[in-house]
Design a protein around this nucleic acid. Structure first.
Length: 806
DNA sequence: AGCACGCCGACT
DNA sequence: GTCGGCGTGCTC
């Protein structure tokens, strides 16, 4: 007897696999998908290994194969196992992103009336109504009944009626939602053609027109295309089919997401001497065949030609007969990048992301699996496409936090997973950024990565210096009685830009903007007396709370610093900025670009087009506009509130602020006119602000790494976040305190030195979907290993290496 | 997730 | 007394 370890698609499975016996007649391999019995139902599972001895006493049998061959390569399976153990995530959840789109299917439950005559005596009115309703519908989904009668009520009634044998429960697999798309093709039958000519072609009947059209095309033509050329063809086509003149066959067609992008073939750029030096080093590593090369960290300011290096490297890998993956932070914001890739690789690229229709995803995945794509571009999930012979993974803008999955398990970081995957495939990794993640830069300093720097910025003006940055101390504005959003100098510059018929970008750091208290007189932000971090305002309790030590206080009536009673919750939204600009410059054409207005598909493109056509003078937006915009007419970039992000209860706040300020600075002066950047701040002395103003990554890094080492934050330690959610606030508090005690005990038992716990404190989002949320932070080393030894009850969520706050 | 079981408070 | 909420354990 043969046994198989199966990763089953059930939250109950968690990180375990389940052992099943393999029926002798069933021929299956590792990585194949199977149906397995699991409790009372059937689930999808993936075979992860075989053995001759069962790892469980009473195994059940695999019911059958879903696919005829393996879906997952051994490298990917190994990657999934590693992710499961490192991120403490269910094994199946780690495999799921590697499966073909539309693969996951669940069993639906149906209810139908049983044949037995109902005994009316012991039924209530609702139950009678339900039976009548079922009699009418014959067969209904449990979901529908729940919707009609309410979840709890439905569950109770169904249980009782089922027990009394008045209804039957049946199961059925949910329908396959994604299939290959096909079209009907008209094929001219060669011998039938002779008969036609014999009959004379003088008439221009519909039939003749169609035959003539097909003959001219000299190949099978889609019925839809014929219909487009010749109107009202259906009767004629039917007749031709009946007479055997043509045949109609189904042909599989590809849904091509690249059709949305224009694909003008582009020429390979000539590398500048600076790029040439960088490229030579990477090229040498790509050619070398000894083991896995060290990952590259390519540091270069906006416009220094990182993309050109990526393209060169991918071309070189493709020339070796291998393939590449290029990760981008957010696909919707990178049409220009995709266009450049399409120009270089033409049809042999694939775009893979969740905005594609399910059909497009399906087609792209299978194209990739067949080895038809040299390069796959996509967000973090594109890392898991079945790219054969993977030779290179590019991670563009590697510092971006979109590379961390936070909302669902596995809460992985694409950078870390990419490096692990590259090890397994002996592939190279190139990470690029103008402002590398401090942790990445540290690893480069430690020689774990190879650092390559591109220093020159290239625009249409040739090698161009970065735009001049001016810091504006907003406290001075307050002192001189200006309580507006804009400083006098920013106002002046906006007016000038409009006068010169150029464009401006106004950037607003909205994260946490309304959630801390600031004195309007002196600019002081209310801080925790114990931890000195800004207190965070929680609407639910109407209190300020410290996210380090749970200190609480009311909103102070007077400023603790200057004593005046001008404390208020600080924050200005994009709408407010827009109003202000309209008041200030009534003639300006303004566009707003943030999360609120970009839910609809195509809105990005709409705004982009307007900007390019110069139908917009001033663009106002949040983080979203900091990235990727390449508009030559933009000569002014204003950061309205550079330091509002600095006050977030997040040790990466300074890093974020620096990165955003640098990115914004990169937006201005990309055309023929030089650009200007104005940064408004209440803390001009802060090293992140100072460094950003000088475009000085090195000095930012020096300040930041010093801060991190003093506080023992990453890269000098590892973090893990534990979040507990529960409908009852009391239970939440109790359970998190119990967990903290358990953690402390385990720390003692296992002798973990240098491990500390922060919390329990309410999560940043203290209530979510009716549940209260509390969190505990762990700061130490080898946290996956440590947490592995702790039993996590229901309701806990684990985030290893969290980015941002919960 | 779903389901069964068992424990306590609120009622006929 | 018992109905039903909710916490807990189990699924190869």
């Amino acid at each position: 007897m043969k046994y198989a370890e199966v990763a089953v698609n059930s939250p109950a499975a968690q990180r375990r696999s389940f052992c099943y016996s393999v029926p002798p007649q069933l021929n299956i391999e590792i990585g194949q998908a199977v149906w397995v019995p699991f409790g009372p139902r059937r689930l999808q599972g993936i075979i992860i290994s075989f053995s001759d001895t069962p790892s469980f006493e009473e195994t059940r049998e695999i019911e059958g194969a879903i696919t005829s061959s393996s879906l997952i390569s051994s490298a990917h399976l190994e990657l999934a196992r590693w992710m499961s153990s490192y991120y403490l995530a269910p094994l199946f959840d780690c495999i799921a992103p590697m499966l073909p789109p539309g693969f996951e299917r669940h069993v639906e439950c149906f209810i139908e009336p049983a044949c037995t005559a109902p005994v009316a005596a012991d039924m209530d009115a609702d139950e009678k109504r339900l039976l009548d309703w079922l009699e009418l519908h014959k067969r209904a989904r449990v979901r529908e009944i729940e919707k009609e009668w309410g979840k709890k009520n439905a569950a109770r009634m169904l249980r009782e009626l089922l027990q009394r044998g008045l209804i039957k429960k049946t199961e059925q697999l949910s329908a396959v939602r994604i299939k290959p798309k096909t079209e009907q093709v008209l094929v001219l039958q060669p011998d039938a053609l002779r008969g036609m000519t014999g009959r004379g072609m003088s008439t221009t009947s519909k039939q003749d027109q169609i035959v003539e059209f097909l003959r001219a095309a000299a190949r099978p033509v889609a019925a839809a295309d014929v219909r487009k050329q010749i109107k009202n063809t259906s009767a004629a086509v039917r007749a031709l089919l009946q007479n055997g003149v043509i045949d109609i066959v189904e042909r599989e067609i590809r849904r091509n997401p690249l059709e949305r992008y224009s694909m003008e073939p582009g020429q390979a750029h000539v590398l500048t001497p600076g790029q040439e030096i960088a490229w030579r080093e990477i090229h040498a590593a790509l050619l070398s065949s000894e083991g896995t090369p060290l990952p590259f960290l390519l540091q270069g300011v906006t416009g220094s030609g990182k993309t050109e290096i990526y393209l060169e490297a991918l071309s070189a890998v493709v020339a070796q007969g291998r393939t590449g993956i290029c990760l981008v932070p957010e696909i919707a914001l990178t049409p220009q990048t995709i266009q450049r890739f399409a120009a270089r690789f033409g049809e042999r690229i694939a775009v893979f992301h969740s905005d594609l229709s399910p059909g497009e995803q399906y087609d792209e995945w299978h194209r990739i699996a067949r080895g038809e794509c040299d390069v796959v571009i996509g967000p973090r999930s594109a890392l898991f496409v079945p790219q054969p012979r993977l030779g290179l993974i590019v991670i563009d803008e590697e510092h971006e936090w979109t590379y961390k999955q936070t909302e669902k398990a596995p809460r992985y970081h694409a950078r870390k997973v990419a490096i692990r995957l590259a090890e397994l495939c002996r592939a190279t990794v190139i990470m690029g950024s103008a402002t590398p993640d401090v942790e990445s830069y540290y690893l480069a300093q430690q020689q774990s990565y190879r650092l390559i720097t591109l220093k020159e910025r290239i625009t249409v003006r040739g090698i161009t210096p970065l735009p001049q940055i001016q810091l504006v101390d907003m406290r001075d504005e307050l002192k001189s009685g200006n309580r507006g959003i804009f400083s006098r100098i920013l106002r002046q510059n906006l007016i000038e830009v409009l006068g010169r018929r150029q464009q401006a970008i106004l950037f607003l750091n909205r994260r946490g903007s309304a959630s801390f208290a600031r004195c309007l007189s002196c600019g002081y932000t209310v801080k925790c007396p114990r931890c000195l971090v800004p207190l965070h305002y929680h609407t639910a309790e109407n209190k300020l709370i410290c996210h380090h030590c749970s200190y609480r206080s009311m909103l102070p009536a007077a400023c603790p610093d200057c004593g005046r009673t001008r404390i208020s919750l600080y924050g200005a939204g994009t709408q407010k900025v827009e109003e202000e600009v309209r008041r200030l410059l009534p003639a300006a054409r303004i566009a707003r670009w943030d999360r609120d207005i970009t839910v609809r598909r195509g809105v990005h493109q709409e705004i982009m087009n307007k900007l390019v056509r110069h139908d917009v003078d001033i663009l106002i937006g949040t983080q979203m506009i900091a990235k990727g915009l390449d508009l030559p007419q933009v000569t002014l970039a204003g950061v309205v509130n550079a330091d509002s992000g600095l006050n977030l209860p997040d040790f990466r706040a300074a890093e974020r602020t620096f990165q955003l300020a640098c990115q914004i600075a990169g937006r201005a002066g990309r055309g023929f006119a030089p650009g200007r950047v104005i940064i408004q701040t209440y803390t001009p002395q802060h090293y992140a602000i100072q460094a950003a103003a000088r475009h000085d990554y090195e000095s930012f890094y020096a300040g930041e790494i010093d801060y991190r080492s003093r506080l023992g934050y990453p890269p000098f330690s590892q973090l893990a976040g534990l979040v507990f959610s529960h409908g009852n606030a009391e239970v939440c508090g109790r359970e998190t305190r119990r967990m903290l005690q358990l953690l402390e005990e385990q720390k003692q038992v296992q002798g973990y030195a240098g491990l500390r716990f922060i919390g329990p404190i309410p999560a940043m989002v203290p209530r979510l979907r009716g549940s209260y949320r509390w969190q505990i932070m762990l700061c130490g080393t080898a946290l996956s290993l440590f947490l592995n030894s702790i039993k996590m009850p229901r309701g806990w969520l684990i985030d290893i290496d969290p980015v941002g706050v919960f």
